[in-house]
């Protein structure tokens, strides 16, 4: 797979149009890596000029900040900012809404000013620029529901970009009882991904999965690697993972185009 790093490009005296911020999940998590690869396939297919930081990338600091460790968060942020500023980065795209939110909203006060886009926004932009096109392909006619990631939706008021892309796949988009600004969290945010939940009577991801199951969808579309894991786990515990799949929008598009 063609994945240029900023360092290698800089060595040749080149600079990409956009930095693809992969994020820790997208780099290490088995499931999330598939999202990363799907997105890169689309970028390559459209011949976009992009690069990744590769081994120079480090955690954005989001889980540290949401845990209350402002010190660790700022350490991460300042190191990342210094690195990106040294490469004169202006545009960033990322497949993780947590990295997206942190880079876009919390880095500026620490000296990192970039135009940051979530991949669903970026893909929409690419479509409008005619860089590539989407056809329904193998998902034509399927019933799809979209789970709003908190840090994309409520956190940054982005509700339509992912839906516009899904509609392009010639599918039937159905909405859960809680959607858009009233979307129910998958349970992973605020560093919950990394700890056991507090005592309660149900897991949050199960509750959200039940809302999705009410719609009897074929596919649950996600826009965040954490939501993806939570919804997949939810389906497994409901023993529905054989008939319903969870896919990131980048994966849906890449697969529909047989990339």
């Amino acid at each position: 797979m063609k994945v240029p790093t900023l360092a290698s490009m800089a060595a040749e005296g080149k600079k990409p149009d956009v930095l693809f911020w992969v994020g820790c999940s997208g780099s290490f998590d088995e499931r999330a890596k598939k999202i990363t690869k799907a997105f890169v396939k689309i970028l390559n297919k459209a011949d976009m000029s992009f690069a990744v930081l590769g081994t120079e990338e480090s955690c954005s600091g989001d889980p540290a900040k949401r845990s209350g460790n402002e010190f660790l968060f700022q350490m991460q942020a300042l190191v990342n900012i210094e690195l990106m500023n040294s490469y004169n980065i202006t545009n960033i795209v990322t497949t993780c809404p947590h990295c997206f939110n942190t880079l876009k909203n919390e880095y500026p006060e620490l000296g990192g000013n970039y135009i940051v886009q979530h991949h669903t926004q970026f893909l929409n932009w690419m479509l409008k620029q005619g860089k590539f096109s989407i056809k329904g392909g193998k998902f034509k006619g399927k019933r799809i529901t979209f789970h709003d990631p908190c840090y994309l939706g409520r956190g940054n008021n982005i509700y339509e970009a992912p839906r516009e892309l899904i509609k392009k796949l010639d599918v039937e988009l159905v909405e859960m009882k809680n959607c858009r600004s009233k979307g129910l969290c998958c349970g992973a945010g605020g560093a919950q991904m990394f700890k056991e939940p507090e005592k309660g009577n149900k897991e949050i991801n199960i509750k959200r999965t039940e809302q999705a199951l009410e719609l009897k969808p074929d596919i649950i579309a996600a826009g965040c690697p954490f939501c993806n894991t939570m919804m997949t786990d939810g389906l497994k515990s409901k023993e529905k993972d054989d008939i319903i799949i969870v896919k990131d929008i980048a994966e849906l598009i890449a697969e529909a185009q047989n990339l």
Binding site: V3, S27, F28, D29, T36, V40, V52
Partner: peptide
């Protein structure tokens, strides 16, 4: 530099 105990040098393994 990641919330899991992975080696940072392995960050780009997915590309292969």
């Amino acid at each position: 530099g990641a919330p899991w105990p992975f080696n940072n040098q392995d960050r780009l393994l997915w590309a292969e």
